[in-house]
Simulated assay, not measured.
Amino acid sequence: MATGWAGDGAVQDQIDATIKDGIKRARTQLRAGPGLERCEECDAKIPEARRKAVPGVRLCVKCQEASDQDARKAAGFNRRGSKDSQLR
């Protein structure tokens, strides 16, 4: 049932587009190739097991966690917006 200017399935289409954008953004941030032996932030040694598990690793676990927290704070997705603002 369509209401207003939005067609049937418009909300689901918006959700699907948001998910696809998130996946695309995450894939662009993946690194490849050999990882660094020392963290580029604090110069701590990165263990061999981490370098094998995470291709292209550049940060130690502590610095990576700090970086991830900063990224989450800056994400700022509006999940509580009105339906009209999500369908534009």
Rank of each mutant, 00 (worst) to 15 (best):
K73I: 10
A74K: 14
G76W: 03
W5R: 15
T3L: 14
R80V: 02
G76N: 07
M1W: 00
A75V: 07
A74Q: 12
A71W: 04
V61F: 04
A71P: 05
S85A: 13
R31W: 06
G76K: 07
R51F: 06
D16G: 03
P34A: 06
L36E: 05
R50S: 06
V54I: 14
L87V: 08
P34M: 09
G7C: 02
K20G: 00
R80Q: 00
A49C: 09
K73Y: 10
D8T: 04
V11T: 09
V61D: 12
P47F: 12
C63S: 03
R72C: 15
G4E: 13
V57K: 00
C42R: 02
L36N: 07
L87S: 11
A49V: 14
V54R: 03
R72K: 07
I15C: 13
A6R: 04
D70L: 02
K62V: 00
G7Q: 03
P34F: 15
K83Q: 12
D13G: 04
L59F: 00
K20L: 10
K62M: 06
P34H: 14
Q69H: 12
D8H: 01
G4H: 08
G33F: 03
G35D: 01
K24L: 08
E48W: 09
L36D: 08
D21S: 12
T18Q: 13
A53P: 02
V61P: 10
A71C: 10
Q69D: 03
G35P: 15
P55H: 09
I15G: 14
F77V: 10
C39I: 02
Q14F: 03
G76A: 13
Q64W: 04
G33R: 08
R72W: 10
K73T: 05
D68K: 01
G81V: 07
E65M: 02
A32R: 03
K24E: 10
T3N: 15
G7I: 01
R80Y: 09
A2G: 10
Q12C: 04
A75N: 11
A26K: 06
I15E: 07
W5C: 11
P47K: 14
E40Y: 11
G81A: 14
E41R: 07
R88G: 15
D84V: 11
F77H: 12
R58I: 09
F77T: 05
C63M: 11
A10D: 10
R25S: 15
I46R: 05
R25D: 15
A2L: 14
E65L: 05
K83V: 13
V54N: 01
Q29S: 12
T3A: 15
N78K: 02
